[in-house]
Computed example of a mutant assay.
Amino acid sequence: MFNAQQHSPSRSQIRKSIRNARKSLTNLEQEQAAKKININFFQHKKLPKNTRIGLYLSNDGELDTSYLIQSLINKNHQIYLPVIHPFNGATLLFQRYEKNSPMTRNRYDILEPQLNCSHICPLYELDYLLMPLVAFDQDGNRLGMGGGYYDKTLARYYREQMQKPELIGLAHDCQQVEKLPIQAWDVPLQQIITPSKFYQW
């Protein structure tokens, strides 16, 4: 575990350190983690039929979600992937994803569904939103990539204390730190799943 208190590193220093740690994982370690997160998720979440789940395609060493996405599709659940809003570039839309969905690369070279407004699901209609993160601490605080996309997308969700979707962070075990330096706008997650553990606050 990266000790964030020992040298009181900044958010950017933690972000760099943890990104390097997860990118140094071998292909085999990534594959094993992807399979374990798939098992761990279903051990802790019993989903009713046709559950709507917001997910992401892994990038930059993030936990590989491909096994989880495939399992959810096989169980007839609905997958929605983030798409950068075409007019309000600081927020995300969530669009239905299927095996044959046409894909495109966004400004960060990350694959996302080709925008189709008829396939967009409003945030509050998702049952779960499984979010990427760079680092998390023992209190459930989340550190993202720094673009603020999820923070801005979820601003109304937090402000109005919406009941849906249920938010869950996904991370490698190596992404946990002792304590993150938090900002006023940071809202901790109530659940984080790693390949080996399920955290709930």
Rank of each mutant, 00 (worst) to 15 (best):
W185K: 14
N76A: 12
G146K: 11
V187N: 09
K179N: 08
I182R: 09
R159S: 15
N141I: 04
R142G: 00
K99N: 02
L123V: 11
I192R: 04
L126G: 08
C121K: 13
Q95M: 14
A135W: 00
A184L: 12
P195C: 06
E178I: 11
A90G: 15
L143H: 04
D186K: 02
L81D: 01
E178K: 03
V187Y: 10
V177W: 01
M103P: 02
Q78S: 10
L93K: 09
Q138A: 07
E178V: 00
T194D: 01
Y158C: 07
V83L: 08
Q191L: 11
G147Y: 11
Y158S: 08
N88D: 15
P188W: 09
L92S: 04
K179H: 11
L133G: 01
R105Y: 11
R142F: 03
P188I: 14
P181V: 05
A155I: 09
G169I: 05
R159C: 08
F87C: 13
E166Y: 11
G144H: 01
L130V: 05
Y108F: 13
W185F: 15
K164I: 03
P181S: 09
I168E: 04
L154Q: 09
Y108D: 08
G89P: 06
F94I: 09
L111W: 03
H85G: 06
I79W: 01
M162I: 04
R159P: 04
G169T: 09
L143S: 06
P113L: 04
C117F: 15
H172V: 02
L130C: 08
H119M: 15
V134R: 01
L143E: 01
E178W: 05
Y108M: 10
L154M: 14
G146N: 13
H172P: 05
L93E: 02
R142L: 07
